[in-house]
Amino acid sequence: MIGPSIHIKGTVSGDEDLLIQGRVEGSIELGQHTVSVGESGKVTADIRAKTVKIEGEVAGDVSGGEKVIIAKTGRVRGNIVAPRVTLEDGAHFKGSIDMDPGDTPAAKPAPKVAGNLAAGAEGGNPELELKHG
């Protein structure tokens, strides 16, 4: 664990899971392990790990071999690459997310549109389709 009063500049690497509650600037490489950025954590670095869970602030690119989770308190600005990405309600994110779930089943066909009139928002909100040409 990197405690709340610790400030690291440089490359963080290792062979175990890591919880960051302090500040890290540089890069974090824990390829087969989990990196957790706690609520008080502030990371200005690229992160590479098997699983990345962000409850604090991250500015940098994040690569998760398995998954990346941005918790409701998380704030991330950067690009994410991972097979699976989860964003919790309340999380802030700006950037790009590359997802490739691999062996997930094919997407379902889009539902057919029944006609020009359909139900709208909950509570009833009638719609009228307009033609353009």
Binding site: T86, F93, G95, S96, I97, M99, P101, A107
Partner: peptide, 14 residues
């Protein structure tokens, strides 16, 4: 994010 997570995609959020 959950909707597009079901397929290979690049999602830019501005």
């Amino acid at each position: 994010v959950a909707y597009f997570a079901g397929s290979r995609c690049r999602l830019h959020i501005a």
